[in-house]
Design a protein around this nucleic acid. Structure first.
Lengths: 181, 181
DNA sequence: AGGTGCAGTGCAACTCGTTGCATAGGTATG
DNA sequence: CATACCTATGCAACGAGTTGCACTGCACCT
């Protein structure tokens, strides 16, 4: 029930097509609320039917036509309504933790290699976030309003990846020194 | 496709009924792989049909009968197979981040109160994890094998909650000083 | 000439996950 | 004494999310 609202937030920041939204989800909002293009198209249609958004067909040459969506008055008030109501705490789904917990029932060395692989992945993501932070928010003390909120969300991403990375390192160290003892 | 494997790990640690598994998911594995009792019952049936687990009907008095499941040879080899193959990196779904990003489109003060609520929730979880850590793993340096892995998973939970908590504090501080400036 | 990739929308079929309800006796709480 | 919660399993219906495919046309690489 919240993909709708993530889309409303993103479309309020800037109008866009389903395709463009899917790209944005890959690069920013989607780090906290993942969605595939299929999911987005389906929900956009539902929101259009509900009157939360409207679309304009835009012909392009060399490229397929697109439907550019924007948020309607109803959409804005739905968003405001949702913002005032409680949401569930963050949900974490981590296959690596499940694997680690069962590591001794299989090839422990393979699980260790998997942890190393995840470490690299999280390090890459962390660098991505830090790059955005340097480029878009060089002076965080001066921020307010929408920009401040965007910055704070990004800080959440940085903190989450730092935390994953630190965990991977702790696990790697513990598993290595165990196997040599 | 990994709830099966989370269940296999849990059932290997100890045989149990669907109900018992649901309790365990509430208290440990489920922090990294959430599941409702319905989901668990359905998957247990599928796993039973596939021959990964077997069940024994156990009559109890004063209480309903239960089906105690245990992992079969096929289940053990399926688990070993899965442990050697890559899994996707952790998925985080955080409605609070979506809200924060859209905060300026609604009642900012209400969003701030929501952040404070989440902060309290994460603080409670952190205390739960730390309590388990103190009780079950007082001397982490001495651990190895299954116990070490369980400890490391718990460490991941501690780190994740510390990270959420720190984030909430950063957000609260920034939003408060913004509104008074 | 052929393959890959991007931009753009969408259908069909599937699995995953949630919610509400039903049943039933036991035990605790007010 | 009524209400509510715990143990225990499960159906039915729904909503969320994934995967695979289809079609168009341009651009780029080999």
């Amino acid at each position: 029930m919240a993909l709708e609202h993530a889309i409303l937030v993103s479309l309020t920041e800037r109008a866009g097509s389903g395709y463009e939204l899917a790209r944005r989800f890959d690069r920013s909002i989607g780090f906290f609320w993942p969605a595939t293009h299929q999911q987005i198209y389906r929900v956009l249609r539902r929101m259009d039917d509900a009157g939360w958004i409207t679309h304009t067909d835009v012909a392009q040459d060399g490229r397929p036509d697109k439907k550019v969506y924007e948020v309607s008055e109803d959409g804005r008030s739905e968003l405001a309504r949702w913002l005032a109501e409680p949401v569930d705490p963050a949900i974490l789904r981590d296959g690596l933790a499940v694997k680690l917990r069962g590591a001794s029932l299989g090839d422990t060395a393979a699980v260790l290699r998997e942890v190393e692989r995840h470490r690299a992945e999280h390090a890459t993501r962390l660098e991505t976030y830090r790059g955005i932070q340097r480029r878009d928010f060089p002076k965080p003390d001066k921020l307010n309003g929408r920009e401040l909120h965007q910055y704070l969300v990004l800080r959440g991403g940085v903190r989450a990846e730092e935390s994953f990375l630190g965990w991977c390192d702790e696990v790697i160290q513990a598993m290595r020194s165990e196997s040599t003892s």
